[in-house]
Structures are given as structure tokens and as C-alpha cells.
């Protein structure tokens, strides 16, 4: 029993790595996947823009109001609010908020889609035709994830900073000019690169974990439900770990 507990996750990791290896070995058949890639980029990327923008907007606005509240003192220049809000969005919130929202929206969707295809034998049907089902289904989804997450990150961060600026200005915390000046004062060009890297990694984690869970779904509608939940929960957990690991390793 204990042995199973220890071995099962290692086995799962092995299966996951093997699945991705098989998927990317078939990258050469890109002609077959191209149309699918475009479809996935729309489904994963474009269709996520509204929710990600909304989440970014509110994060930026709330962060600004709360920072202003915490720093309410005559001895601190109010522009410091801009110096805190903007790097926080760029370094942390833009990527993490995008990641969490998309773990639910994209991760669950991919796992449910592939899980249903598995239990209704659609994956068998692809294989039966002589297609590489792993390549055909997984490559476009993971590629769409790593291409589109940075775009979504930029959206969330941009809108978030805009939201912070708007609240600062119209909520009478500090003027837009001060906000921007504060942001510029401590701006480091490495910050957005780090944020993009995070988004890239999160995009990979969410889509690949969801593909893995979905592709190996067993046991009917209940199995699909289980895979879907696990995909969303596990990708959130892995995002938390990856976030810490990236910060420790790179910053």
C-alpha cells in the first residue's frame, strides 16, 4: 500500500514525460496539425482575452487602492504607489492571475474534450485511420498554450496597469502623471521578460497537464469528470510550485 503511494506518482510522471516526448517527436508532421493549431490558438487564446482582461483590470485596481491605503502617510511620496503596483503586476499578478483563471477555463476544457474523445472511442478512431493521435491532439494544444499565454499575460498586465492608473487618477489617490513617474523610477527591463517567461511556463504546465489527464481518461462520464477536476486542480498546484521555483532560480 505504502509502496503504491510512492510509486504511483513516479509512474504518472514517467507516463506524462513519455506522452510529451511522443507528442513532440511527431512535430515533423506539422502539415496535419496546422489547421488544428490555428483552431486551438483561437479557442485557448483569443476566446480567453475577455476574462483575462477583466481579471487583470480588477487586480490592478484593487492593488492600487490597497497600496494607497497601506501607504497613507505624509512622509511617503504618493508616486511610490505607481512604483509598487506596476512591477507587482508585471512580475507576479499578470502571470499568476492569468494562470489561475486559465487553469479552470483552458485546463478543464482540454481535459473534458480529450476525455470525452477517449471514452467515446474517438481517439481509437483517429488511431484506426493511421493517424498519430498523440501528435494530432496534443501538439496543437500545448503549442497554442505556450504561444498564447504570453499574449494573455500582456493583456492582463496591460489592462491591470491601466486599471490601477484609472483608479489612482479618478479615485483621487494620485494623479496619472505621478503614477507613471513612480512606475518609471524603478522600472527594470528584465521584469517584463521574467513575466513573459512565467506565462510561457504556466501555459505549458496547464495545457500539458490537461492533455495528459484527458488523454488517459478511463471509465465513462465519471472518468471525464474526474480528469477535468484533476486537470484544473493539479495545474493550479503546479503553477504555485513553478512560480516559486522560477523566482528562487532566476531572481
Amino acid at each position: 500500500m505504502l509502496e503504491r503511494r510512492i510509486l504511483a506518482p513516479i509512474e504518472a510522471l514517467g507516463q506524462y514525460v513519455l506522452l510529451l516526448t511522443k507528442a513532440f517527436q511527431s512535430l515533423s508532421e506539422v502539415r496535419v496539425y496546422r489547421k488544428n493549431l490555428f483552431k486551438q490558438m483561437v479557442a485557448i487564446g483569443i476566446e480567453s482575452i475577455p476574462i483575462v482582461a477583466l481579471a487583470g483590470l480588477f487586480s490592478g485596481a484593487v492593488l492600487t487602492v490597497q497600496t494607497a491605503y497601506q501607504l497613507e502617510s505624509p512622509f511617503i511620496p504618493q508616486s511610490i504607489i505607481g512604483s509598487i503596483v506596476v512591477p507587482s503586476m508585471v512580475l507576479e499578478l499578470g502571470a499568476v492571475v492569468t494562470g489561475f483563471i486559465l487553469a479552470g477555463r483552458v485546463g478543464a476544457r482540454i481535459a473534458a474534450e480529450l476525455g470525452t474523445m477517449r471514452v467515446t472511442e474517438q481517439i481509437d478512431a483517429l488511431e484506426a485511420m493511421g493517424l498519430n493521435s498523440i501528435g494530432y491532439l496534443i501538439v496543437p494544444r500545448v503549442l497554442a498554450g505556450v504561444f498564447m499565454f504570453p499574449v494573455l499575460y500582456i493583456t492582463a498586465t496591460g489592462v491591470g496597469i491601466g486599471g490601477g492608473l484609472g483608479v489612482a487618477h479618478y479615485g483621487d489617490f494620485l494623479s496619472a502623471g505621478e503614477f507613471v513617474a513612480g512606475a518609471r523610477q524603478f522600472f527594470s527591463p528584465f521584469d517584463p521578460i521574467f513575466g513573459l517567461l512565467k506565462a510561457f511556463v504556466f501555459g505549458f504546465i496547464i495545457t500539458s497537464v490537461a492533455c495528459y489527464k484527458g488523454y488517459y481518461t478511463g471509465g465513462g462520464a465519471e472518468g471525464v469528470g474526474r480528469s477535468t477536476t484533476e486537470a484544473a486542480v493539479l495545474s493550479c498546484v503546479y503553477i504555485l510550485f513553478a512560480n516559486l521555483a522560477l523566482a528562487v532560480l532566476i531572481l
Binding site: 467515446t120 472511442e121 474517438q122 481509437d124 484506426a128
Partner: peptide, 24 residues
């Protein structure tokens, strides 16, 4: 090999019991 197996499968047509139509 998997590549050869895929070639072999092209000789087959299979009607699955549940149809297995691509619902997307």
C-alpha cells in the same frame, strides 16, 4: 514500429460499435 503499424492500419476501415464520430 509505430510508423509501420500506422501504415498497416491504413489497410483497414473500422466501424466502431458506438460510431466514434468526431463530435467537434
Amino acid at each position: 514500429s509505430y510508423g509501420e503499424l500506422r501504415q498497416l492500419r491504413r489497410k483497414f476501415g473500422m466501424l466502431f460499435q458506438g460510431g466514434a464520430l468526431f463530435d467537434s
